[in-house]
Design a protein around this nucleic acid. Structure first.
Lengths: 242, 242
DNA sequence: GCGGCGATTTGCGCTATCGCAAACTCCGCG
DNA sequence: CGCGGAGTTTGCGATAGCGCAAATCGCCGC
C-alpha cells in the first residue's frame, strides 16, 4: 500500500535548513532552531497515486510536503470517497499527534510525484517544547483549514452544484493555479471524478457543467486538465444570488 | 446589537479558580497559573437570542462559555443562515486571535441565557507565553472542530437529507443530550428551522421527517423541543447504506 | 381566559440533479 | 502505428427534495 522511496543519501543525511526556513510553520526561527527542527526528519519520494498515510491507520509520523501536490481523501463506511482538500508545497499534513489523535482521520494521496519530509510523532513534543511558536503557527494553519471546511459546509448547504463547482475551481486556482498564455490552469492532473468528489456531485454533472462553460468560452478543459480563461466570469457564476 | 450584562460585583472582582480548573483548555494547571489565567477576565450574562460576538465584527476579545448553550452561525452574502455548531459549557469561542484573524468568522448567539467569560485579545499572547499547554490544548480543540466540520462536509456530500438530520440529531444528543424519563432530549430550545440550517435543507422537509419518525415512535417532538425515544433506531437510519 | 403570533404541519406542483447506458476520444504502450 | 482502457460526453428517464400556500397548533402575556 505505502510506497515510500528514500531519496538516496539524503534520507538520513543532514537536511538543509533552507528546505524549511521560508515556510510559515517555521517562520522566524534561528538557524540553530531550524537545525533542531530537522533532527529526526527523513525525506521521501512518494509516487503519484501512492499514499503518504492512510485513513484510520496508526499515526506514527507527521509530514511536511516539500514538493508536489497531495489530495486528502475521506472514505465513508459504504465506500464513497470525498476529497477534503489539496495540500500545496510547504504545508504540514498528518499532524494527528498535534490534535491528540492516534489514527489519521483521512488518507493523503500524491496527485503527482511528491517529496515529503517526515518526523516520528515523538518529535512533536520536543519540537513544540523548544519552539513555542510552532504550536501557534500550527494553530493558525489548522484554524485556516477549519474555516475552509466551514466554508464548504456553507457552500454545500446553500449553493447549487454549478456554483459549488465554480467556487471549488476558483479555490484550486488560488491555491495552485499556474498562469499560462491564455489563462490560469490547475497545476496537477485532476479529473471530473475528482471535482465531483470535492463538490458532492457526480462526474456526469461536472462534465455537463464544464462542457457548458467551455461552450461559453469560460474555460478550456481536456483530459485531467482544466484551464480557466475568464476567472471573473467564473466568479460571477460562483457568487450568483439564487 | 450586543447585549452583555455584567454580573453584579463579579464583573471585575476576583473570579474563582474553580470556574475553570476542570476545563480541558486549562487542564493540569497549578493554582497560581489558574489565577494568572483569570487576570483580565470578566464575566458576563448574555441573554437568549443576543450575540456574544458577530460575524465580520472586529475581534477584540475571546471567550469561554461558562454556562448555557451558544449557536455559531454563518450568514452568506445573500442572507442565508447556516448553523456551524452548538457550543457547550466549558468551551472556548471566538478565539480569532489564536488563529491570527482580526475579525470573527461567524456570529455566536445565545440559545438560552448564558454566562460567558471574556478576555481582551491582548491577553492571549501573555497566556500562551506563560502557559504553553494552552496552545496545545487549543490546537486539540480546534482540531476536533475541524474534524467535525470535515465530517459534515462528507455527510452533505454523500447522504440524503433524512440521514443528515439523523446524524445531526445524534450529534446534538451526544454533545448536549439530557436523559429524561422516556428517552434523551436536547437540552435547549431548537426549532425545525434551526435543524434545517444545520443540515442544509428546509424547515418543511425537517418537519416532514420528524412527523414521519414520530409516527414510527422514534422521537417525540413539539414546539422547539425534541426527545429521542429510540436512539439506536435513529442510528440505523443515519448509517443506512444508500 | 383570551387573543395573537410564532412554530409547525401538510398538500401539491416543479425542477435540479442523479443514475445509468452507450458511444466517443485520446493517451500511452507495445 | 494500432490497440486497449481510462477518462469523458451526452441522452433519457426517475425522483428527492424544494418552494409556496393555507391551515392548524400551542405558548405567552395581558
Amino acid at each position: 500500500m505505502f510506497a515510500y522511496k528514500m531519496r538516496g543519501a539524503a534520507g538520513l543525511a543532514n537536511l538543509d535548513r533552507s528546505l524549511i526556513s521560508a515556510l510559515p510553520a517555521f517562520s522566524g526561527l534561528s538557524g540553530a532552531d531550524l537545525d533542531f527542527a530537522l533532527e529526526g526528519a527523513r525525506s521521501f519520494i512518494v509516487r503519484k497515486d501512492a499514499a503518504v498515510f492512510e485513513q484510520d491507520g496508526e499515526a506514527h509520523s507527521f509530514f511536511l510536503l516539500l514538493h508536489g501536490h497531495v489530495r486528502v481523501e475521506r472514505l465513508t463506511p459504504d465506500g464513497q470517497k470525498v476529497v477534503a482538500r489539496y495540500i500545496s508545497e510547504g504545508e504540514l499534513i498528518g499532524i494527528a499527534v498535534a490534535m491528540g489523535r492516534d489514527t489519521y482521520p483521512a488518507s493523503a494521496v500524491a496527485a503527482v510525484d511528491c517529496t515529503v519530509l517526515s518526523w516520528p510523532n515523538a518529535r512533536w513534543a520536543a519540537l513544540t517544547a523548544r519552539i513555542p511558536a510552532l504550536s501557534g503557527n500550527t494553530l493558525k494553519t489548522v484554524g485556516a483549514r477549519m474555516e475552509e471546511a466551514q466554508n464548504r459546509v456553507v457552500e454545500m448547504a446553500t449553493e447549487r452544484v454549478e456554483q459549488r463547482v465554480a467556487h471549488t475551481l476558483l479555490r484550486l486556482l488560488r491555491q495552485t493555479g499556474r498562469k499560462v498564455e491564455d489563462g490560469v490552469e490547475i497545476d496537477f492532473p485532476i479529473s471530473r471524478q475528482d471535482i465531483a468528489e470535492m463538490t458532492g456531485t457526480t462526474l456526469f454533472t461536472v462534465s455537463r457543467i464544464l462542457s457548458d462553460w467551455e461552450g461559453k468560452g469560460l474555460v478550456k478543459s481536456g483530459r485531467q486538465k482544466i484551464t480557466v480563461l475568464q476567472p471573473h466570469r467564473l466568479l460571477v457564476i460562483a457568487e450568483a444570488r439564487n
